[in-house]
């Protein structure tokens, strides 16, 4: 597993970079409607920030900040939300993934679809982020 490498510069750079990357990731997810970006990109960026944490802080510290189980939980729950978003319209008489029939009162038409896309993008972001961290963790376990 990855060992913590004692070096001030790395610590500082890490502590500066990680929040920045995370902020950018959030921006990318949110901005997906209007420009390049979206769930995948944002999710991967967020995962990259966690990976950076893992690399800089070492196992114990980074596991405290982002527990490995959280990764799996994020990945699965993201997909769960996606599925539920897909199934919800069916309860309201629409097709699977038909955001136009999401049972949300007071919203309709294009806005409802916009909302649906937003939910889905976020769930993708969670899922991708979780899985990427999971992949990193699992592969890094192999290092001895």
């Amino acid at each position: 597993m990855i060992e913590r490498y004692e070096n001030v510069i790395i610590d500082i750079v890490c502590s500066v970079m990680v929040p920045l990357i995370q902020l950018f990731a959030l921006y990318v997810v949110v901005h997906g409607h209007y420009g390049p970006g979206g769930g995948f990109q944002g999710g991967v960026l967020f995962a990259v920030s966690i990976i950076l944490l893992r690399l800089c802080l070492g196992k114990e510290a980074s596991h405290k900040k982002f527990p490995p189980k959280l990764a799996a939980a994020l990945a699965a729950s993201g997909m769960l939300v996606y599925m539920l978003t897909g199934l919800a319209p069916m309860a309201a008489g629409g097709a699977f993934l038909d955001y136009g029939h999401l049972p949300i009162p007071g919203v309709s038409g294009a806005e409802l679809r916009f909302l649906g896309i937003t939910i889905v993008e976020w769930s993708i972001a969670f899922s991708v982020c979780g899985t990427m961290v999971l992949l990193f963790d699992v592969l890094a376990e192999g290092m001895r």
């Binding site: 990318v28 990109q41 990193f136």
Partner: peptide, 20 residues
């Protein structure tokens, strides 16, 4: 969009995984 994903996933993450 594709460029973005390729840069993050294709170049970034897959590179990291390879190195790991």
């Amino acid at each position: 969009d594709v460029s973005f994903v390729e840069a993050t996933l294709g170049a970034g993450v897959s590179g990291v995984l390879f190195v790991l």
